[in-house]
């Protein structure tokens, strides 16, 4: 039996749950509500931005672990890359959904084809394709290798999407956080949400990794059994 990279932990889900509750309190009760925008819809911001940052982080981890897999050929890097991509795809989907909810209220329509929105959608498509590559390969280790190659090649769109609001004139709001345009309470709640979602990301990632390891072990056992059974 191989050594496990990640054990299912009982502490991490607890920590993320408590932090999430605190984050909800901060976002909906503690933070003063800004004038001008829809009252509730502006709160989407505190989930939308951390999710977007964390999806960039998830895809960066896919890149790093893909490189490490090609270099060292250790299955664990492949498992981490794949799990991180899955979490990243879910987070990017949530970014698109929360963004659309905000856009409907702020702009009056769900979607527009501007640089930031388009590049984020493309990003989502790239990593959905990343998850598909594997199932097309005949042998498992070849699938892992191809996925690693695609995980490296596909990364180009991540910085492009992250920088889209500075490279082009877009309808997407400018990066207020870096420009110091936030009230201190808002900034605090925002940063707390980022930490919370980081905890959630780590929790989902370890959960997925340990699940995948169990899957591999079961595969191995059933293969051994069928072998013994002749």
């Amino acid at each position: 039996m191989k050594e496990r990279i990640a054990q299912r932990s009982n502490i991490l889900p607890g920590i993320s749950f408590v932090m999430m509750m605190v984050a909800l309190y901060l976002v909906f009760i503690y933070v003063p509500t800004a004038q001008g925008m829809g009252i509730m819809v502006q709160k989407v911001f505190y989930f939308h931005v951390p999710l977007a940052w964390l999806s960039y982080l998830a895809f960066t981890i896919v890149l790093v672990c893909s490189g490490l897999y090609l270099w060292r050929r250790e299955a664990k890097w492949d498992i981490i890359a794949r799990s991180s991509a899955e979490v990243g795809v879910v987070f990017t989907a949530l970014v698109l959904i929360t963004g659309s909810i905000w856009a409907k209220s702020a702009w009056g329509y769900w979607w527009t084809w501007d640089a930031r929105l388009t590049s984020t959608l493309v990003l989502w498509l790239i990593y959905v394709a990343y998850l598909m590559v594997r199932s097309f390969a005949v042998e498992e280790d070849r699938g892992a290798r191809f996925a690693a190659v695609f995980g490296i090649a596909g990364f180009f769109s991540v910085p492009l999407s992250a920088l889209a609001i500075t490279l082009w004139r877009t309808q997407h709001p400018p990066p207020v956080i870096f420009e110091g345009g936030l009230a201190p309470e808002m900034l605090f709640a925002m940063l707390f949400c980022v930490v919370t979602f980081t905890a959630l990301y780590i929790q989902l990632l370890t959960q997925r990794i340990s699940l995948r390891q169990i899957e591999t072990e079961i595969d191995q056992i059933s293969q051994n059994l069928s072998y013994q059974g002749g």
């Binding site: 097309f136 005949v138 492009l160």
Partner: peptide, 27 residues
């Protein structure tokens, strides 16, 4: 060419190549 070399080693390569190629080439 990179993805063509990749997809030629898979099943259903005609489907896989455009799925990989279009989003990466979008920019």
């Amino acid at each position: 060419i990179l993805f063509s070399a990749l997809s030629v080693h898979t099943k259903a390569r005609e489907i896989l190549l455009p799925i990989l190629f279009f989003p990466v080439c979008a920019p």
